[in-house]
């Protein structure tokens, strides 16, 4: 059976995935294609909103082209004519298990990691936890999202090798963090801790505290003032933001819909 994925710009090329012949547009990321096909590929450092990074190594596949066979991450592998991808060879399984075991040994108590490990057939890691690093597995999603997507660049990788970590500059309160929470949303392990206290958003992990704005309907603090400011800045004079929390806005919307329904 030949499945065909729609092409928009690039020409279609023939490739083989797990023995299945398909045509895919050239240069697409292999991981995206695999996931679309319903092939289960584990990954911790990939997010469709940012460019591939290739850090966690969980998405490895065995690629073959001509006489060359090699193990490669699929997130940053581009589809080319004649590429043959296998996702469940013994070496792929072996590699994924070891990557998982090493990642899990960094943060053995994280449930999401335990589940993924169990799926891959990895039990208790053979390596002890090495040093106090919280739940961070250095996937870099927070750094990339903050830099490329949000444009705040509030955090970055610091140090190298085994001393690598993610922090704000000098570990101090960030001046450029807007409190958008994107880093918290993309973190696969729940490493980034935050809470609201006395009308302030505390992103504990980044040592950053941001004043919040109260919802003008219910009075509950609902967003960081800086975020509102930054979004307003991007909208320019064209749009204005209502200082209403999402809960109240939903209620207002329901109310309006209900009224409209009664009028009909």
């Amino acid at each position: 059976m030949i499945a065909v994925f729609e092409s928009k710009k690039m020409p279609l090329v023939k490739t083989v995935v797990n023995g299945k012949h398909i045509e895919v547009e050239r240069d697409r990321w292999a991981l995206d294609v695999l996931l679309e096909m319903g092939v289960a590929v584990p990954t911790l450092c990939h997010h469709p909103a940012v460019e591939p990074y290739g850090a966690c190594r969980l998405c490895v596949v065995e690629a073959r082209k001509g006489k060359w066979t090699w193990l490669t991450t699929s997130c940053d592998l581009q589809i080319r004519e004649g590429l043959n991808i296998e996702t469940d060879t013994p070496s792929v399984i072996r590699s994924r298990r070891m990557s998982m075991e090493l990642i899990l040994s960094r943060a053995p108590h994280v449930e999401s990691l335990q589940r993924l490990a169990a799926d891959l057939g990895v039990g208790r890691p053979r390596f002890g936890p090495h040093y106090d690093i919280g739940k961070c597995i250095l996937c870099g999603l927070c750094v990339r999202v903050c830099d490329r997507l949000i444009g705040a660049s509030a955090i970055s990788f610091v140090g190298r090798g085994r001393r690598r970590s993610v922090t704000t500059p000098f570990g101090a309160a960030s001046e450029s963090c807007t409190g958008c929470g994107a880093c918290i949303a993309v973190c696969p392990t729940g490493h980034i801790r935050s809470f609201v206290e006395e009308s302030a958003l505390n992103i504990e992990t980044w040592n950053t505290r941001l004043e919040m704005i109260d919802c003008k309907v219910c009075g509950t603090p609902f967003t960081a003032a800086k975020l509102l400011e930054s979004v307003q800045g991007r909208l320019g004079k064209g749009g204005s933001l209502e200082r209403v929390c999402s809960k109240c806005r939903r209620l207002q919307m329901c109310k309006r819909l209900g009224e409209a329904f009664h009028q009909v």
């Binding site: 850090a55 190594r57 190298r160």
Partner: peptide, 15 residues
Amino acid sequence: ESCGKCTACREGIVR
């Protein structure tokens, strides 16, 4: 000297 980007090198060599 490892940059620390990928699991294999950063974690593997330490182990």
